[in-house]
Each structure stands twice: as structure tokens, then as C-alpha cells.
């Protein structure tokens, strides 16, 4: 009797162990199921590199290049801001901060990670957007720049915590060896710790970028949502994620527009898949 019960439980455990594979597969399958139909209307090349996104005009123009460039532009901006600050903060927490302050700082970073993106978007709308508008004398503050700043902020917790882990897992002997040779603490960090932790730091950056590309609500609320080819960072743009979030509500199930939004989902899924697999390779290379 007990044997039977345990046999059933152990089979159940195995099934649940496989659940994550099942769900990843299911997500991809359903994105494909709904999204691939769009390629009856446009070729994959026209879809990816078409310069006009007018999904409800007749005939619909389904080129997502402006959206891809929009995503790339804000991501690039966010990366430029968040990488130095995030890695710097990680070094400070891992190496310099006294134990007490370290705990406070880590709690602060965790707090940031916990704030819902819609709340950050709301705050960004009220504070950051007018600030950017006044600073650069723009007609609107809803620009790629505002989005980049906000997203940089949202990428910080990921970058800081993974980078800190990477620095922390550098063997103590490396550091002690360098210090014993008379190097200053900073020289030790710069010449020994950072190179030793490099693959972990790369993973931190990649996962931070992954977070930025996938971010939806905040970016939709503060980038202005203009689906045009971006020229400068001071103009409104629209990202892949925001397009889905903003338009799916109005798209009729089974319409071209609906399929096209799912096809954007496929693109996002593949991007995040690639980023996460690469980051994982970096993280486990050192072992």
C-alpha cells in the first residue's frame, strides 16, 4: 500500500520536474501557432525589415523595423547608463562597503527589484518626462531618452546582484595574493578581481539587457509610442513589447493584426531565449 502511494508520488514529482520544459515548449508552440499565419500575408524579410507599421490601414503594412530599432535604441541607451553604474555599485557593495551598510544597500536594491514596473512608469511620467522635456526644450518629454533612463534603472537590480555574486565568488586567495604583493585595494580590484569575475560580469550585463528588452509597462508609459523610424534619442519611439501591449486589446482575434502581434511575440521570445542561453553559458563557464 505504502509502496503504491510512494510510486505514484514519485511519478508525480517527475512529471512536475518536467513541467518547466513543457511550459517553455507550450509557450513557443502557441506563439508559433498564432504568429506564423502572418507570413501568409508578408514575407519574413518584409516583416522584419519593412519600414512601415500600419496594421489597421487597408492593406495593412506590417513592417516591424521601426519597432525593432525603437527597442534597440532604448536598450542601447539603457545599457550605456546602467552598465557602468550597475557594475560600479556591485563593486562598491562587494568590496568596499562596510558590512552594515552593505546589508542596507542590498535591501535597497531588492526594494527596487520589487517595485512593480507600472508604478515606476507612473513615477517616470510624472517626474522624468517633464524633466527631459524642460532640459532639452522639447515639444514632449515622452522620448527614447526618458525610456532609456527608466529602463536603466530597472535593469540595475539584475546587474548589481549578479555582478556582486560574480565578484563574491572570486577565490579569496587571488585577492590576498595581490594585496600581499603590495598592490592597493583598487589595483587589486581593477587588475585582479574584475578580470577574474569577467564571465559573471558579462552574464550580469546580458541578463540586465534581457530584462530591458522584455520590459513593457514602464516603457509604454514614457516613450511616446510613435511607431516611426527613430532618428534621434530625443524623439518618441515605440518598442516591440509596447506595441503588443498597446494594440492587442483592439486587435480582433484571427485578424492579420492579431497574427502580426503574435509574430512580434515570436521575435521577443527568440531574443530572450538567445540572451538567457548565452548568459547561462557565461555563468557556468568558470566551473
Amino acid at each position: 500500500m505504502r509502496k503504491v502511494k510512494e510510486f505514484i508520488i514519485e511519478k508525480l514529482i517527475l512529471i512536475c520536474g518536467l513541467a518547466s520544459i513543457f511550459f517553455v515548449g507550450l509557450i513557443f508552440l502557441f506563439l508559433l501557432k498564432e504568429g506564423l499565419s502572418v507570413f501568409n500575408i508578408v514575407t519574413p524579410l518584409d516583416f522584419l525589415f519593412g519600414k512601415s507599421w500600419y496594421p489597421i490601414s487597408d492593406p495593412a503594412q506590417l513592417g516591424i523595423l521601426p519597432l525593432i530599432l525603437g527597442s534597440l535604441l532604448v536598450t542601447l541607451g539603457a545599457a550605456v547608463i546602467s552598465i557602468p553604474i550597475g557594475i560600479g555599485c556591485a563593486i562598491y557593495i562587494a568590496e568596499i562597503a562596510p558590512a552594515r551598510i552593505k546589508e542596507v544597500l542590498k535591501a535597497g536594491i531588492e526594494l527596487l527589484a520589487a517595485i512593480p514596473s507600472v508604478v515606476l512608469g507612473f513615477i517616470g511620467m510624472i517626474t522624468l518626462v517633464p524633466f527631459v522635456k524642460n532640459c532639452f526644450h522639447l515639444p514632449t518629454g515622452l522620448t527614447a531618452l526618458s525610456g532609456s533612463i527608466m529602463l536603466a534603472f530597472m535593469a540595475m537590480p539584475t546587474i548589481v546582484s549578479i555582478a556582486e555574486d560574480a565578484l563574491y565568488s572570486v577565490p579569496k586567495t587571488y585577492k590576498e595574493g595581490a594585496l600581499a604583493l603590495g598592490a592597493t585595494h583598487w589595483q587589486t580590484i581593477w587588475r585582479v578581481m574584475l578580470p577574474a569575475a569577467s564571465s559573471g560580469l558579462l552574464a550580469a550585463i546580458m541578463l540586465g539587457i534581457g530584462r530591458v528588452i522584455g520590459e513593457t509597462m514602464a516603457v509604454m508609459m514614457i516613450t511616446g509610442n510613435a511607431a516611426v523610424m527613430p532618428n534621434t534619442i530625443l524623439e518618441p519611439i515605440r518598442t516591440l513589447t509596447a506595441t503588443i501591449a498597446a494594440e492587442m486589446g483592439e486587435a480582433v482575434v484571427g485578424s492579420e493584426h492579431y497574427f502580426a502581434l503574435f509574430a512580434i511575440g515570436i521575435v521577443l521570445f527568440i531574443i530572450s531565449f538567445a540572451i538567457n542561453v548565452t548568459a547561462d553559458l557565461f555563468l557556468h563557464r568558470k566551473q
Partner: peptide, 10 residues
């Protein structure tokens, strides 16, 4: 790592 909006689509 899947973007939250993709979960929405799914």
C-alpha cells in the same frame, strides 16, 4: 527570462 508581455500573449 520570457518577457512578461509574451506571457500575456501566451
Amino acid at each position: 527570462g520570457v518577457p512578461s508581455v509574451v506571457y500575456g500573449l501566451f
